[in-house]
Design a protein around this nucleic acid. Structure first.
Lengths: 342, 342
DNA sequence: ATGAAAGCGCTAACAG
DNA sequence: CTGTTAGCGCTTTCAT
């Protein structure tokens, strides 16, 4: 089935296809009456302009590519919702691609986006930051990174300021009296993970606590990984009295593992996360975490990209602060477990 | 900046652009040595074929349009993840559009997708089912509906079988001894809501319970709506002892509202949801709900669409069963509240 | 105010 | 095996 084109309308209206093109786009260079006639015809006939033809000529697709880890991650979903909000308003459509934390898949996805000639790219939680370069450069496609591993070679990025937030969480735990504090990270080595861990180390050092290597373990950023990692911590001869998790999903997994061992949060072990998912106030117990303005960050990144596409200059790198949200998953350690540690 | 095209490569390789086209796509009609030379050149020069040019000619974009309510809804996110899984494997990219439960926006979004000449459309939780017709028909674009309002005019749909599941939930509540059971629906009038409500009514009728109109209220499918609706129910002279919610987000909101009144779930009021979000086993208390295989349904819909695109026939309408998952948010009513009702 | 013609990047039919 | 040519649907000079 061949869709109707501008030519079909031209034939029906007994004008040239250029006139149809002009009429349909509201050019003033066409007789209002014929314009109206043409539009009526197009309407009746069910004409929908082809973005392919147009884009080939105009060199713009009004399309932007978004690559995320996985859209099933609620952090990514909210991010994308924020992106959609602003790109849609500006008439852009979104091509969505998933990397599944696999650099090879990520690059393949990016290549597909670029073959479709997206006008710009938004990449969240990328593991291959710099490797986009050779792909983007020849096409002159701008990119804005979100929570990227290494913003180095690029000009635009928006990220959560993980390090101070990670430090704040850890200090919160220390101030409750914890001494054996574990960190469950992410095995993919995201920049955000590195920063959160660094903040954790900073806090320990600042309070004269020694970092114990066996208390730094890795999950996968999802519930399953949190369960596993926490289970491992519980196997230790001296398990931690508090755990700071890379993100809320990990924390939720950790809490499950703790309960599965017949222990309670926070009475036996305190748990803190990072992200503040829409659900984190409703977990059992409500989760102490760091609020990350996900939708806002997505919107910010999208706005930045649109500005770049419009030829405007704009701030190169934005770091948005996280906010410690203390709920009920953290509490002072039990006296007996707290004693006897450094 | 003009990207390099097949012609540029042709010039550099001193062959015609058709030869380049052939070489790059691995046609056997080209000398292996020149083919290799061309490919090397293309690689070095950073060539990426333009899907625009290709699609214009081939009439396929290898792109499918997905329209959802909002990607921030975890049900939709998982659905899309399932879709991605299968479409990606087949080399398709995804254009994502959000309707925000607004028919007008939904149609606008669909129009944008079709202008980009997506090969097919996947629409979840559509409110305008039949209205896609005039858009799709002239372009011959197939659609597969997911949990659609009215599958009537279309051939392909996959939906959760809400009615028996809704009945099962309600009967579970009845079997616990509840008599005043409320239903918090969705104000947008989705088909899934209608079916769940119907199942609820069926169960009441089957057990000789009278349906009380004041116990059927509406949220918005999100936490906020659940809070509001539950608050209204709690204002009643005789509040319900159990509440069946349209979905888990609504149920989570309802539980918040209940706690906000100083009451407890399930001791004072039982709450059940629908969907079984990734998080629903970790709420406080863990939520009784209906498992909806979201990713699987997305994958199923995508497979169906791909088959249609490949010209194969396939099953017209698939209904996947839900599975009642009993957790801790439902329990027998307190004796005093249970008494004195019909 | 309108039409003719060129060209965006690609594929494919046809001719060598 | 390779080149020539036409054309996909559109925008945009350049004439008229």
């Amino acid at each position: 089935m061949k869709p109707v084109s501008i030519k079909d309308i031209a034939r029906a209206a007994r004008v040239s296809h250029s006139t149809v093109s002009r009429a349909l786009r509201g050019s003033p260079l066409v007789n209002p009456k014929t314009a109206a006639r043409i539009r009526r015809l197009a309407q009746k006939i069910g004409y929908l302009p082809s973005a392919l033809g147009r884009s080939l000529k105009t060199r713009r697709t009004l399309t932007i590519g978004v690559v995320v880890n996985t859209i099933a991650d609620p952090v990514m979903a909210e991010l994308v919702a924020g992106i959609q909000e602003v790109t849609n308003r500006a008439g852009y459509s979104i091509l969505l691609a998933e990397s599944h934390s696999d650099p090879e898949r990520e690059l393949r996805a990016a290549r597909a986006l670029l073959e479709h000639r997206v006008d710009g790219v938004l990449a969240a939680a990328s593991r291959v930051g710099p490797d986009y370069r050779p792909l983007l450069e020849p096409l002159g496609v701008p990119i804005v990174l979100i929570n990227n591993q290494h913003p180095k070679p690029y000009r635009h990025a928006v990220s959560i300021d993980s390090q101070p937030a990670g430090r704040a969480v850890t200090e919160h735990l220390i101030s409750l009296g914890h001494r054996r504090i574990a960190y469950i990270g992410d095995r993919f080595g995201y920049q955000t993970d590195v920063e959160r861990f660094t903040g954790y180390l900073e806090a320990l050092a600042a309070h004269g606590l020694q970092q114990r290597p066996e208390l730094a373990v890795k999950g996968d950023g999802m519930i399953a990984g949190g369960i596993e990692a926490m289970a491992a911590l519980l196997e230790l001869r001296r398990p931690p009295t508090a755990v700071f998790c890379y993100n809320d999903l990990t924390a939720i997994g950790a809490m499950r593992a703790i309960r599965a061992r017949g222990l309670r949060v926070p009475q036996d072990i305190s748990v803190a996360g990072f992200d503040d998912l829409f659900i984190s106030a409703d977990t059992n117990p409500p989760l102490t975490t760091v609020r990350q303005p996900k939708a806002h960050m997505g919107a910010l990144a999208a706005e930045t990209l649109l500005k770049v596409l419009a030829g405007q200059e704009c701030r190169l790198e934005v770091r948005v602060p996280g906010e410690l949200v203390i709920r009920e998953s953290t509490a002072p350690p039990r006296p007996e477990t707290a004693q006897g540690d450094d």
